[in-house]
Write a protein that binds this DNA or RNA. Structure first.
Lengths: 138, 138
DNA sequence: TATTATTTTGCAACATTGTTGCATTTGAAC
DNA sequence: GTTCAAATGCAACAATGTTGCAAAATAATA
């Protein structure tokens, strides 16, 4: 088991349960974004569907993972780089979604260019979702 | 009825039906993004739910409207500026979603800054989804 | 305009996805 | 180990999205 798992849960004052450990491990191993459905598939019958929903929700609230917007009604989740601060506002972020294999990448080190909006708009968060073909699919 | 409606449908070789006229009119009037649920509510019992799904799908395929990614499993749709070419690839786009009132704005005239991705990624589309407070809500 | 061919719609049935309340179980604290 | 708090699983439900097919509306043709 990945050493960071228990650490992360403790730091966020969460009880250390099987489902949380397992789901967190999936994120740490895969190093890519996961949708609810992915987790459900990978964990087989191990956990109830409801537990997965609640676990993801908890992780998002604690800033352990964050959501990635998508245009097809299938929100994906990815690990936050070193846990965002609690209550989390994940400022700037670039994601890449491969049209071919569907893999979603979370590109933490790509800087989001400043977006200038018309006056009156107060921006607190900018998500950039790029899509195309990833390195594995071309 | 908005004069562009019949035009737009004809140009896209679509039969001119009540549901299409009505839904297209909603987009032309509202000048903001609409979710499936919005349309369903606004049209009351007038059309079947299935018809709305199929109409939206058709409009997207024809490039009359486009989808706006969201982080909450509720894809929204907005009119394409002067219909994208058929088969449509909507290159660059900035959207703004108000955390307060939920209104989604489609900012066609804001330029999307170039995003530089690691080599190996071939980008065909970039969506920028900003969120915060809109001018009506502050 | 009347007739035929094509397209679209509505219905029904179904599949998938997400939510809520509550009893039971598990983990944490003592 | 016992007690308390938290998390899980189950069941039931609500919401959302999909498919096939007959009926209706639209378009094309005479």
């Amino acid at each position: 088991m990945h050493p960071r798992i228990v650490d992360t849960l403790k730091r966020n004052q969460l009880s250390i349960t099987d489902s949380r450990k397992k789901i967190l491990e999936m994120f740490l191993q895969r190093k890519g974004a996961l949708a609810h459905a992915d987790i459900e598939q990978q964990s087989g019958e191990e956990f109830d569907r409801v537990t997965i929903y609640r676990t993801l929700q908890t992780f998002v609230e604690k800033g352990i993972i964050h959501t990635i917007p998508s245009a097809d009604n299938s929100v994906r989740y990815a690990l936050c780089k070193d846990d965002c601060s609690e209550g989390h506002h994940h400022d700037n972020h670039v994601h890449f979604m491969c049209d071919h294999c569907g893999t979603t990448y979370c590109l933490d080190h790509v800087t989001v260019p400043a977006v200038v909006l018309p006056s009156g708009f107060k921006v607190t968060q900018v998500d950039v979702v790029a899509s195309g073909t990833c390195m594995k699919c071309q």
